[in-house]
């Protein structure tokens, strides 16, 4: 896995504050494990099955089964989840969940308090880019992790730009480290 971290879309330069690079999947697993109130936001690109992305929604379900992390499905992603017999914690637009996460008084989907770590995957790159930026600036108590295969500099932590095999292998490692199958 390369530690090189440039934004996937060349012109999407961020900074001065930029995401720390997750160089080893074990680091991501440890962060998820340490989180007291994590949440996973899954966009529609996770449902695509092509040679470029694989079917990443399967990993989100396995991640949920391993950790119990609540899953928010954005746009029509929920349709694929339900088809696979999985019930996400909520269906919500990406902007809506972003807007709630930035609110320190929001007590979460279950009313038990604010989330401390939000994991994102499967949104269009540029859309996730700006939402993560909104959270970087206005959700000061929240850490964000981009699990997409592209480096997203507005997250707190992000994978670098990865090859598909590296990416899927990272998920296998994370899920295994978290006690999943």
């Amino acid at each position: 896995m390369s530690a090189k971290a440039e934004p996937w879309q060349t012109a999407e330069i961020a900074g001065p504050k930029k995401a720390l690079v997750i160089t080893k999947p074990e680091v991501a697993a440890a962060m998820i494990k340490r989180a007291k109130r994590p949440i996973l936001i899954v966009g529609h690109l996770s449902t695509k099955t092509d040679s470029d992305t694989g079917k990443m929604i399967d990993y989100t379900i396995r991640l949920n089964k391993a950790t119990g992390i609540p899953v928010v499905a954005t746009a029509h992603t929920i349709r694929e989840f339900v088809k696979q017999g999985f019930q996400p914690a909520a269906q919500m637009s990406a902007m809506d969940i972003g807007n709630r996460l930035k609110d320190p008084t929001w007590n979460g989907l279950d009313g038990k308090g604010p989330y401390d770590v939000a994991l994102f995957m499967g949104l269009p790159y540029y859309m996730e880019f700006v939402i993560l930026s909104g959270l970087k600036h206005f959700a000061t108590n929240l850490k964000t992790i981009s699990l997409d295969k592209y480096y997203d500099p507005h997250a707190s932590w992000s994978f670098p730009n990865l090859k598909v095999e590296e990416w899927t292998q990272s998920f296998e490692t994370i899920i295994k480290k978290l006690g999943g199958n």
């Binding site: 961020a14 900074g15 001065p16 504050k17 909104g134």
Partner: peptide, 18 residues
């Protein structure tokens, strides 16, 4: 709900400002 492109303002010669 603001979604800035970057962290800075570069509209005057005071800046760039973080």
């Amino acid at each position: 709900f603001y979604l800035p492109f970057c962290d800075v303002c570069c509209l005057c010669t005071f800046g760039k400002c973080d």
